[in-house]
């Protein structure tokens, strides 16, 4: 019985991790649906957003390491701190600016190229952003504290202890993340269903040429979508950053969003969420039952292998559009 309850706890924790994966995956899906670009840099965008947020909150001078190296003086901080809410707002503005720049400097010049070329360009973008984040804000591991409660939730533990006779350990941060993710998805659905721009976005996702012919500006919609994806990256970056510190490994965790997407299908928002949950639970359970037998740390590859095996049987993922090929 204890073993069973323990597994249940593992499942629950897996679900919470899955929510985090889904958050990152959401950004991928948005961009892929609207512009057909498979944005490898989404994970690094999370890292970049989190770095920028921490930098602004601590009042760091941007490019401080670079400026110090060039001028020879030590340049550190402005000497003031910025409140979290304002910093989040400023970071969102930075992400919108980034989205605009990416569209102006990269995507505009790669229109009509093969999707695989665009994909490789986003790999280049990922490298660039990774370097830029480090040069702008320094590469040391940073603590991100925007006032999200952390640590084990005692109330959940006490409550489950009273009901099952076994206290579940759940991080309060994970609960907040789940709530935020739900709100975010709800907001995105509302936006795409009930606003003018949202409808235009869906039209572009359906058919570029048809959307153009009824007077929708593709360029504007792409900037919009990348901005939203940047915002989603910011939210994911805050959650992951608060959980495990802002550092390079953040972008590797975010890479897990790829198998999540493959499982869920590249074009489906519900797919991203369900895929995230399946991968989160799957890898925790696998680590729990099998991982101990083979030396542990199976979480690094389990998600990918699961997605690979799954795809062999269903190439378009769970909710993806059926792939029809013509000569």
């Amino acid at each position: 019985m204890d073993q069973l309850l323990y597994s249940a706890e593992v499942v629950l924790n897996g679900l919470m991790t899955g929510v985090m994966y889904a958050l990152v995956a959401l950004g991928f899906v948005l961009i892929f649906k609207a512009s057909g670009v498979f944005n490898y840099a989404q994970g690094v965008m999370c890292l970049f957003a989190a770095l920028t947020l921490v930098g602004i909150m601590n009042g760091q001078v941007p490019f401080a390491p670079l400026l110090s190296a060039i001028t020879g003086n030590r340049i550190g901080t402005f000497g003031f701190t910025v409140p979290a809410a304002l910093a989040v707002l400023l970071t969102a503005v930075v992400m919108v600016g980034l989205a605009w720049l990416i569209n102006m400097l990269i995507l505009r010049h790669l229109v009509n190229q093969a999707p695989i070329i665009l994909f490789m360009a986003t790999i280049g973008l990922a490298y660039f952003l990774e370097g830029l984040g480090d040069v702008m804000w320094g590469a040391d591991v940073k603590v991100l504290d925007v006032g999200i409660p952390q640590g084990i939730s005692e109330s959940v533990e006490a409550w489950t202890h009273a009901v099952f006779g076994y206290g579940f350990f759940i991080d309060r941060l994970d609960i907040v993340a789940a709530v935020v993710a739900t709100l975010l998805v709800a907001a995105l659905v509302m936006f795409s269903q009930y606003t003018r721009q949202g409808r235009a976005m869906r039209a572009v996702a359906d058919d570029h040429q048809a959307a153009l012919s009824v007077g929708i500006s593709l360029r504007f919609i792409w900037v919009l979508v990348w901005s939203i994806a940047g915002f989603v990256a910011l939210v994911a970056g805050i959650m992951w950053g608060a959980k495990s510190g802002v550092q390079f490994s953040l972008s590797l965790i975010a890479l897990k969003a790829l198998p999540v997407l493959m499982l869920g299908g590249f074009t489906s928002i519900p797919g991203a969420i369900v895929g995230g949950l399946i991968i989160g639970v799957g890898e925790k359970l696998f680590e729990f039952w099998v991982g101990q037998l083979v030396g542990g740390a199976t979480e690094t590859w389990f998600a990918y292998v699961l997605a690979l095996v799954f795809l062999v049987f269903r190439p378009q993922g769970l909710f993806g559009e059926r792939i029809i090929e013509r000569v």
């Binding site: 670079l66 990269i106 010049h109 790669l110 190229q113 070329i117 490789m120 360009a121 790999i123 280049g124 973008l125 990922a126 490298y127 660039f128 952003l129 990774e130 370097g131 830029l132 480090d134 040069v135 590469a139």
Partner: peptide, 17 residues
């Protein structure tokens, strides 16, 4: 090393364009 990352990334994009 970070500047090198940026340069490599930018080069990839420039070459592709």
């Amino acid at each position: 090393a970070y500047v090198e990352l940026m340069i490599v990334g930018a080069l990839i994009i420039i070459v592709l364009i």
